[in-house]
């Protein structure tokens, strides 16, 4: 019987001979992801990675680069057979994964703790119910009604709350920057701002219920929008004067596209202060608001 040492020696010799004859090519180093110009590993979902055409040898590279400047669509990606090449396929799947994670992951308790926000829940018992039962996401649970009655100031001029909606990433990315600016701005105008809180599994129209419970003049929900592949961090503010359950959707004033590549959170906070001020002065919102 051959011992292990002998087998190993034979194997090494065979490999050496095969390599000499060119039958086997051994990798000379471990795999490393491509590096960006700054020497860091390049993220294939980054804007800079996507800006580079993957199509090799186009008729007119200048023209292709110009085309790519006009759109963020995934063009100039090339093909392998009649399929996407690996990087394009994986970048697309990665962006989709980010979008899905933002829908189905909860806002972290740390954020809520840091911001001192009371947490309440809609009538939905989980994310799954949330995405399939819009009617339940528009109502606060009985427990939530008790909690906000107990812990929030009644009859404020403005009641602000946050809701995960379809993107908790949007809340994680924007709320902490936006809320203090919004609250301070409104208080500086001498307005009575209610106690902000966080609503889990909340839809936009939950603000109508909140407004009725707390007797707010204006209600404003900061909510995560349905994510696209370009960004999963887009938040919107829906603002209503004298909201009530069953009111027409057209009475909502919307500030949308709040994220770092759209309307940045800090600017959005300052802008929403002005919008709410106008709404209170005119005692109207949505289509009833004169611009």
């Amino acid at each position: 019987m051959l011992d292990e040492k002998l087998i190993s020696t034979i194997a090494q010799e065979v490999m050496r001979q095969l390599q000499e004859k060119g039958y086997v090519i051994l990798p000379d180093k471990q795999y490393e992801a491509p590096l960006s110009p700054s020497g860091e590993i390049e993220d294939i979902t980054s804007q800079s990675a996507k800006a580079k055409p993957l199509l090799t040898d186009p008729c007119d590279m200048d023209s292709l680069l110009r085309m790519k400047k006009f759109t963020n669509a995934r063009i100039g990606v090339g093909k392998i057979g009649a399929r996407l090449n690996t990087q394009t396929m994986l970048a697309m799947r990665a962006d989709h994964a980010k979008a899905r994670d933002s829908v189905f992951t909860d806002v972290s308790p740390q954020l809520l703790q840091r911001m001192g926000l009371v947490e309440v829940q809609s009538k939905c018992d989980c994310k799954d119910t949330y995405v399939t039962r819009p009617d339940l996401g528009r109502k606060l649970s009985d427990e939530a009604v008790d909690t906000i009655r107990r812990s929030c100031t009644a009859n404020p001029d403005v009641q602000i709350f946050a809701a995960d909606g379809l993107s908790s990433s949007a809340i994680e990315a924007n709320l902490e920057k936006l809320l203090p600016i919004l609250t301070d701005g409104l208080q500086a105008k001498g307005l009575k701002v209610g106690t902000p809180f966080y609503l889990r599994y909340g839809r936009v129209a939950a603000e109508d219920h909140v407004s009725e419970i707390l007797g707010a003049k204006v209600v404003c929900v900061l909510i995560g929008e349905r994510p696209g592949l370009a960004t999963a961090e887009s938040m919107s503010a829906y603002i209503v004067y004298n909201a009530y359950v069953g009111m027409p959707e057209a009475k909502r004033t919307v500030v949308s596209n709040i994220h770092k590549d759209g309307l940045p959170a800090v600017e959005a906070g300052a802008y929403i202060v002005e919008v709410i001020d106008q709404i209170l002065q005119q005692k109207a919102s949505g289509v009833d608001l004169r611009k």
């Binding site: 995934r74 990606v77 009649a82 989709h96 592949l229």
Partner: peptide, 25 residues
């Protein structure tokens, strides 16, 4: 057919430009 399956305006995904060529084959 949309570029690499990603519609950057409607924020949803459908078939990539490549798909019809592959299915035809």
């Amino acid at each position: 057919g949309v570029p690499a399956g990603d519609d950057i305006m409607l924020n949803y995904q459908t078939n990539a430009y490549h798909d019809s060529a592959a299915i035809r084959e």
